[in-house]
Simulated scan of single mutants.
Amino acid sequence: MDVQSWDDLRIFLSVARHDTLSGAGRALRMDPATVGRRVARLEESLGQALFVKGPQGYTLTEAGTRLIDHAERAEQAMQGAQSVLTGEAGTLTGQIRIGAPDGCANFVLPRVFADLSKANPDLDLQIVALPRVVNLSRREADMAITVSPPTASRLSYQRITDYKLHLAASKTYLSTRPPLTSVADLRDHRIVGYIPDMIFDKELDYLSDLGLDRVALASNSASVQVHLLRHHGGIGIAHDFALPFAPGVTRVLTDALSFTRSFYLVRHAEDRRLDRITRFAAALVQGVRAEVARLESLLSNT
């Protein structure tokens, strides 16, 4: 494949992943009109339409869907070649985007990414914090941290670390409410938690087994829930690693109720051949493990 052919495929992939010329243009740092012309040129050279433009943006045709796999293999090959040419040793360069649940993104990744950035000054790091699973097939990110292993066969994963969650509330809230001596007493308290119909992973459904049929203060964001606890909103399940960022919030009923969940690092199976991505993944896993352990250790005596 010549360089020009790859460049056309690169633009095709960006439009397929962003659905719009403007979105693809921002990602590619190109004018949307130029993106449109390049897509039209590729379609003309192939003699087939690759997209249908509709109210929701650009949708792949059958021919475009068939081309995706070939284009992604070409992308992998070009990235592999770049890795070889830039050398396997030394610091990392370029741009890497990580998708993560917002709790991990807000409380764990900032310190990890700051350290990685200091160690690799020519590396641009991006965190996509979403209260849902990041779509790697659409290349919303280069890799993702999830709370469940993926089911898609084209994705590979590794478990990063376990983390713990407990009931928590502010000391001010607890001082003004009925005593909390057992899980049954939760019925006398305002519950903070996820919006029930927006729980995107079964591993986040902490309250269903507690017989609680009402969540008085709800959000699809774990970090928002922590702030609700900080402002004396009620009692809820919180990550232990988040509580050092919530002064005045304390764990309760730790002997009666505790959850353990895991973080997984997910990426395309083909990416394992890319030394740059593999080295970054190893550093990320090590950093997340260390940061979760550090933050949880701050609560070991509380």
Rank of each mutant, 00 (worst) to 15 (best):
155 L>R: 10
117 S>W: 05
144 A>T: 06
133 V>Y: 01
141 A>Y: 02
118 K>M: 14
128 V>F: 02
94 G>E: 06
129 A>K: 13
156 S>M: 05
135 N>D: 15
98 I>D: 03
129 A>Y: 08
160 I>M: 10
136 L>E: 04
105 A>N: 12
151 T>S: 09
98 I>C: 05
148 S>C: 05
102 D>H: 12
129 A>F: 12
93 T>A: 06
157 Y>K: 00
89 A>E: 15
110 P>R: 11
114 A>T: 11
97 R>P: 06
95 Q>V: 11
122 D>L: 13
155 L>A: 12
121 P>N: 11
90 G>W: 14
124 D>E: 15
124 D>W: 10
143 M>W: 02
135 N>Y: 05
104 C>M: 15
106 N>P: 03
143 M>Y: 02
111 R>N: 04
123 L>E: 10
150 P>F: 10
153 S>T: 15
158 Q>N: 00
164 K>W: 07
146 T>S: 05
105 A>D: 09
95 Q>C: 11
157 Y>T: 02
162 D>M: 03
117 S>A: 14
162 D>S: 08
147 V>K: 00
116 L>Q: 02
132 R>N: 10
99 G>L: 02
114 A>G: 06
150 P>V: 09
153 S>C: 13
156 S>T: 15
112 V>W: 05
137 S>F: 07
150 P>S: 08
125 L>N: 07
116 L>V: 04
124 D>H: 14
133 V>K: 00
107 F>P: 00
131 P>V: 12
108 V>A: 09
135 N>P: 05
119 A>S: 06
150 P>Q: 09
107 F>Y: 07
155 L>Q: 14
110 P>D: 09
163 Y>H: 13
165 L>R: 14
158 Q>R: 04
98 I>W: 01
159 R>P: 03
130 L>V: 14
166 H>N: 15
129 A>I: 12
97 R>H: 08
142 D>P: 01
120 N>D: 07
167 L>A: 12
152 A>Y: 09
114 A>Q: 09
135 N>Q: 11
116 L>M: 08
109 L>D: 10
105 A>V: 11
118 K>V: 15
103 G>H: 02
164 K>E: 09
156 S>A: 14
163 Y>R: 08
163 Y>E: 10
96 I>W: 04
151 T>E: 13
106 N>L: 09
140 E>V: 03
140 E>R: 02
106 N>S: 15
131 P>I: 12
127 I>L: 03
129 A>H: 12
165 L>S: 13
